[in-house]
Amino acid sequence: GKLQTVKSPLTTTGEELTSFQDITHYNNFYEFGVNKSDPAQNAGALPTRPWAIKISGLVKTPKTFDIDDLLKLRPLEDRTYRFRCVEAWSMVIPWVGYSFSELIKQVEPLSSAKYVEFTSYFNAKIEKWWPESTIQWPYKEGLRMDEAMNPLTLLTLGLYDDVLPNQDGAPVRIIVPWKYGFKSAKSIVGIKFVDKQPATTWNDMAANEYGFYSNVNPNVDHPRWSQKTERVIGKPFYAQRRNTLLFNGYGDFVASMYNGMDLRKYY
């Protein structure tokens, strides 16, 4: 059903939204097939209810949250963000959710917690398309603690004022708008607070192509293509190109977290 949302001061304004059709039919969700159109066809099998996220690790109060608890925990905000894939395409997406930091507060992390590790749902019987790649499932992603606490990092429960479609990572995912899309884990079942940088799926597959940080950066090329420009999804082929912005245009909110870090080394 439709979700009640409030406007957010953190929303991106003045950009044309990508259509619902394109947001839901151009997906990377390899558990449901490696082609962009596969998840829309196959992700219907994902059992999104009941659903629980188990929060564990270096926290004072480990808890498990049901999806209905998450939908009620905070007012749901309408937050439009630019979305930049490492494959050099981009969308503008009206997500629904609230800052991930609100959920973090509920479990009171210990001061020893330096990183957050996300684990996505995986069931080989349901996600039958996983053998189309050699990836080790379940999908894992991670953020540094300050990145996770940044107000832009969105615990995402919906899109276009409705619950998340399965192919977009239902029923709950993370969205980190200044990083390449693969950092934003879908269909999350586990959140663990840890003291060391966690292993993450694409970094394990090819560390030279997918760094742990993977901040959107037009000055650091992917080995196989330039990241200077991007293809805007939904435009005709002669009007797709636009310049990529450092931190995907969110530098004012996030650049200070990387002060003194060599972004070429920590790409």
């Binding site: 394109d22 039919h25 151009y26 962009k36 159109s37 395409w89 293809r231 999804i233 939904g234 435009k235 005709p236 082929f237 797709q240 190109r241």
Partner: peptide, 15 residues
Amino acid sequence: GSITNNLGPDPTAQI
């Protein structure tokens, strides 16, 4: 598809 802008979400990649 190019004339009718019907090459899918990412026409450049599709071509």
